[in-house]
Computed example of a mutant assay.
Amino acid sequence: MKPYKIPESVLVVIHTADLEVLLIERAGNPGYWQSVTGSKDALDEPLLTTATRELFEETGIVADGKTIVLRDWGLQNIYEIYPVWRHRYEPGVTHNLEHIFSVQVPRGIPVMLSPREHTAHVWLPYLEAADRCFSPSNAEAILQLPQHL
């Protein structure tokens, strides 16, 4: 049996210097566009480790800490887990604590999706990207991007 997900996650907004934002479409949920997201693998996993791992797993992008650097915004959201996904968590868990990160990447960086998680990707100007996100907290983070450069 697969272990329950930990209800603490990261959201990583991937962008270029001119505020083009990468969105990825969820496998099994056509039209559900989002930034990189993912839960901690262990309660004591550092958030930067979670963000680095999820960025690589979902896009193939490596945050090396030199040219590609993850930025922790120090912001958190608590949101209600969609009922369709609650079975992944311990019984009775209804909310998740999300930590916001961003990463600036060079225009044209290769994106290698994990096909079991995502089926397509698109680069959009940040306002359009925010409009396309299915998650309100993801859209809000994208709208805040200019303040965090």
Rank of each mutant, 00 (worst) to 15 (best):
D131S: 07
E98P: 13
I68K: 03
T37D: 08
E54D: 05
H87T: 04
P46Q: 04
E80V: 02
L43T: 10
R86M: 03
E57D: 10
P83N: 00
V122F: 14
I81R: 00
V103K: 11
Y79D: 09
G38K: 01
V62R: 15
V21H: 13
D131W: 06
V122K: 15
P46T: 04
L145I: 05
I24K: 09
G108D: 12
Q34W: 11
E128F: 14
E45A: 07
A27P: 04
I81P: 00
P91M: 11
K40M: 07
L43V: 12
R86V: 06
V103F: 12
E140G: 08
Y82I: 02
T49S: 11
A129I: 05
L97G: 02
D18H: 12
S39K: 03
A129D: 05
P83A: 02
R53E: 10
Y32E: 11
Y126L: 14
G31L: 08
R88E: 08
G31T: 07
H15G: 12
Y32P: 04
N138W: 07
L97R: 14
S114V: 00
Y82F: 02
N96V: 06
S39I: 11
P83Y: 02
V93A: 06
Q144A: 12
I81D: 00
D44E: 14
A17S: 09
S102E: 09
A63N: 09
Y79W: 09
A51M: 01
E128P: 00
R71K: 13
T50Y: 01
V105P: 05
D64I: 07
L75I: 12
E98M: 15
E25D: 05
L113N: 00
A63S: 14
P110Q: 07
P125M: 14
E140N: 09
N29D: 00
T52D: 10
P83W: 03
I14P: 03
H99L: 01
V93N: 03
L149V: 03
L97Y: 13
W73H: 08
W73G: 01
A17Q: 06
